[in-house]
């Protein structure tokens, strides 16, 4: 949604101001909370993760992005201690992951089933009992806004309510790092915005968040740092704005294809078959390009100027072919 000037301030028509990342002081801590060195996971016919290196500083939101099958989930599951790596090293607070690791992390998987017939409160209580240290149930209820359906059977929750409950379960042990694997997939815009707010609440408590997502505006708005993966390797890493500055110096002018006259075809452009066919012009000099368009007789009524987005970067780095 940061695909237009308006999109920088709004997500699906709702204001974004509340969801800007909170850069905590802990981000200044020099010892990364997690560090991955030459991590590999090879299956008989596929190298799912093929030599990945990166580190996650304490207190930030770190985004792991990539198309389907890029190796994100395998990487995150190795970092969670769920999948055993073929080779490589994962350090937690500078040391190999030991027994305390499970006590200090919270995990929300892409999809998780729970025991049938248990209410939200009973699920929270059950998972709380599995850890030596707990966040109080009242605190969890407040952070994740669970008040209105605490005593409802967990199977009867809506998508957004369920994700909030699963986030609360991931927080029961007051973890130092929270893994969130595509937590907003399938949620409606309101539920997604609500979830972003929850993630910001977690960050404000000096927790580290490791997030995977398919939504580029989500990564842009929540993540302090991102790593883009493809074919099992990291292909770009840094803060969203740094990466955009590294890869793009231009901005994009968009106008409806019907407003783009034949006489303007000499201006380098590409046609996008959106709902309304759109012409996209990349330029480093907006004024000059607009002047050229006016000279060619183009109507500027539907014109929009937007900066480059993470989605542009993602497509540029990973290509446009459909992934399985």
């Amino acid at each position: 949604m940061q695909g237009s000037d308006r999109g920088k301030d709004h997500v699906d028509g709702l204001p974004l101001a509340a969801f800007r990342p909170i850069r905590s002081n802990a981000a200044m801590n020099n010892t990364p909370i997690l560090e991955v060195r030459d991590l590999r996971k090879h299956y008989p016919k596929v190298k799912a993760v093929d030599g990945v290196d990166f580190s996650v500083p304490t207190g930030i939101c770190f985004g792991l992005l990539g198309p389907n099958g890029a190796g994100k989930t395998t990487t995150i599951e190795m970092m969670e201690g769920i999948t055993r790596p073929s080779s490589g090293e994962i350090l937690y607070k500078g040391e190999p992951m030991g027994p305390r690791f499970k006590n200090e992390v919270g995990i929300q998987f892409q999809s998780t089933a729970l025991q049938d017939f248990l209410t939200v409160r009973e699920n929270l209580k059950f998972f709380s009992n599995l850890y030596p240290k707990n966040m109080s149930v009242d605190e969890l209820i407040e952070i994740c806004s669970l008040e209105s359906y605490l005593d409802r059977d967990a199977r009867k929750l809506s998508g957004g309510q369920r994700q909030r409950m699963l986030l609360a379960i991931a927080l029961v042990n007051d973890p130092e790092i929270v893994f969130l694997d595509e937590p907003t997939t399938g949620l409606d815009p309101q539920a997604r915005l609500n979830f972003w707010e929850l993630i910001n609440r977690i960050k404000s408590r000096n927790k580290t968040v490791l997030l995977t997502t398919h939504y580029m505006e989500e990564a842009y708005n929540l993540c302090d740092q991102i790593a883009i993966m493809d074919h099992g390797k990291i292909i770009a890493q840094g803060s969203p704005n740094e990466l955009l500055a590294q890869h793009f110096q231009d901005v994009i002018i968009e106008l409806p294809a019907s407003d783009f006259p034949v006489t303007a075809h000499s201006i380098p452009h590409r046609r996008l078959e959106k709902v309304t066919p759109t012409i996209e012009i990349s330029t480093q000099d907006v004024n000059a390009t607009v002047a050229e368009l006016l000279q060619a007789g183009a109507s500027l009524a539907g014109l929009q100027v937007r900066p480059r987005t993470l989605e542009d970067l993602f497509l540029e780095l990973t290509g446009k072919e459909l992934r399985q």
Binding site: I82, K102, F109, T112, A113, L130
Partner: peptide, 16 residues
Amino acid sequence: RYRKNGYLKRLNATPL
């Protein structure tokens, strides 16, 4: 069933 629907995987992420 717990294994197939991912519940065991979720429990494996805890100290249990």
